[in-house]
Simulated scan of single mutants.
Amino acid sequence: MFTHTAGIPLGDIFERYPPKEEIPSLEESLSKKAILIQEPGLSFSYSNTGYNLLDLLIEEVTGRDFAEYMKEEVLIPLGMHNSSFTWSEEFDPAVPVGYDLKGNPVPVYIYPEKASDGLFANVEDIAAFAAAGMTNFSHTDHQVLNDQSINKLYTPMVEKIGIYGVVLKRYRFSVLPFWLICFNPCSHYRKGKTNKSIGTKNNLVINPYRVDLPLALFSLQNILPNK
């Protein structure tokens, strides 16, 4: 599931809710989405549902809420003190407003799942997260993964990635390795999704082995460039 090769579908990217509205539980949501569509390990297919199953797995194994677990075990150790997997009206600074393609404001929305779509973070914390995935770059007092584990993150699991190779070429990323993280949409930064989102999308691009290269964080409405 970590490598998007478990044969699990993308998931429903249109099921979103206002923060104060009652939403389905994680189990209820996954009962409709966690199905097998192809043989595991056969090929790469991006899957939010796979990561959301890991969300449920973490809760069942640890007996802790996913947002609380991530805060204590990942966010705080990385120094990401302005990040949370739980929406709050007390975010300071407040979450900025996103807009659709017609210029209409898009209110903040959340999903039943948190692992693939639930992180609220500012720019500094996003940079800290990116640095944590770079060898010989992480601050020694803000390290979650060692260099061996980081290297495993960039070890190819499949030879071909299908249509996603076209996406990367449109981004002009013809030389690997690199790391593309999409924080989208509406008015906050979140990991995952496709070009069907509304509001804003913020993409972070790094080369994990080139600490001399700057991080690139850019915003756009859709994940794919127009040309």
Rank of each mutant, 00 (worst) to 15 (best):
D92I: 10
Y69Q: 12
S45H: 13
I110T: 10
K33N: 13
E113V: 03
P40C: 15
A67L: 01
N48I: 01
A34L: 15
A34W: 05
A67K: 00
Y51A: 02
E59S: 08
L42V: 14
N52A: 06
S116T: 05
G63N: 03
D100L: 10
L30T: 12
K71Y: 01
L78N: 03
S47E: 04
L26A: 03
P93R: 05
A67T: 00
L54P: 01
G63P: 02
D117M: 07
A34I: 14
L57W: 11
L57P: 03
N48D: 10
D100C: 06
L119M: 11
P93C: 05
P24G: 02
V61Q: 11
V61I: 14
K33D: 12
V106P: 03
H81Q: 05
S84A: 09
T62M: 02
S47G: 07
E22Q: 14
E27F: 09
P105T: 04
P24D: 01
E89W: 06
N52H: 13
V106M: 15
L57Y: 12
V95H: 06
N104I: 05
N104S: 08
E72T: 08
I58K: 07
N52P: 09
F44N: 07
S116K: 04
A34T: 13
N82R: 10
L53R: 03
D100A: 06
F120Y: 13
M80D: 10
L75S: 01
G63R: 02
L26T: 01
D117T: 11
E72R: 08
S47L: 07
P112D: 02
S83H: 00
N52R: 06
A34M: 14
S29P: 04
V106I: 14
F120T: 00
E39Y: 15
A34V: 13
I58N: 05
K33P: 01
L53A: 06
E28H: 11
P77S: 08
P40Q: 14
I23T: 02
R64W: 01
K102W: 09
S43A: 14
W87V: 00
N104F: 07
E68V: 08
K32E: 11
L57H: 07
K33A: 14
T49Y: 04
I76G: 03
N52I: 00
S84F: 05
E22N: 13
A67C: 00
A34N: 13
S43Y: 12
S84H: 06
K32D: 08
E89R: 11
Q38F: 15
M80I: 11
A94K: 13
I110N: 02
K71Q: 09
P96L: 02
A67G: 01
E59H: 08
G118W: 00
T86V: 13
E39D: 15
T62N: 03
L42Y: 15
E73G: 02
G98W: 04
E73K: 14
S88P: 03
S88Q: 07
L53M: 15
P77A: 06
K71M: 01
G118A: 04
Q38A: 15
Y51V: 05
N104A: 09
F44E: 10
A115L: 07
Y46I: 04
L30G: 11
E72Y: 06
Y99M: 08
L56S: 12
E28Q: 15
Y51L: 04
V108Q: 09
Q38H: 15
D92A: 12
T49E: 03
Y99H: 15
L119D: 03
E22S: 13
E89C: 06
